[in-house]
Amino acid sequence: MHMQDVEISDLRRLTKVILDEYDYDFTNYAMSSFRRRIQRILELYKFGNVNMLIKRLKEDREFFDEFISEVTVNVTEMFRDPSFWRELRDHIIPNILLNHNTISIWHAGCSSGEEVFSMAILLREMKMLDKAKIIATDIDTSILDRARRGAYPIKNMDLNEKNYIRFQGSGKLSDYYKEENGKAMLDPSLVENVSWRQHDLVKGIVFNKFDLILCRNVMIYFNQNLQNEVLKKLHESLFKYGYLVIGSKESLIWCEIANKFIVVNNEEKIYKKIKD
């Protein structure tokens, strides 16, 4: 079985069923990666074709949670792009704290939580963790459970450690976890004040305002129309002069609300909201 088996007409029927039955909208996901995700689900569950997947989705409502877990991409690392985290520590967060005593942060699309733990470690090393209010959201409830636990395969820690060293943290990454049954158990006190919530960027509402939003490598799974819509929500969710960070290979240049932001750091894709 191969890619040729999933056609665009199949995907259209599938997204319509999901929208009608579950009120999640995948119509404007980027076609290439969405197609691969569906292909992967067909192989994983041994569905011979998309119709079998549609039938299962119609008949088995519990299966939908599994579907959401598999259709979303959950590959991430701690301190991904170390130079970004240095910039955050050395410039962005000190800048926010010039005018405030506290800092509110939203991790939009937090996946298994590596980025949230990275942020917590950074803030603890700055002695600012107590002053931070962090909300971490994802579309997938089961990945949020995993994020809350903060237990990562020990084999991933090699890469995470390398990133942390290049971030030039003040300690060792191993200061923040202990090894148990082949897992790295992150220190739970790092995230005791983090609020983990289920939230879908596509259909979800604007629920709060923040000083800093991280939405890195999330919108790459959307087409440009949807990126525009989501960026409007992210803009609305920022205080004036708040910061938005996207992935290192994403850009705001083409989006409709580009003029409401200025570029703070182009290399690290850090933007500042300057207009409501």
Partner: peptide
């Protein structure tokens, strides 16, 4: 193709990046 991203071309001939497995 940039480091650590998959590079796809979409119908309509534009690029998409992804961090999939």
């Amino acid at each position: 193709a940039p480091a650590n991203y998959h590079l796809s071309v979409e119908l309509g001939q534009y690029f998409s990046l992804s961090t999939e497995e």
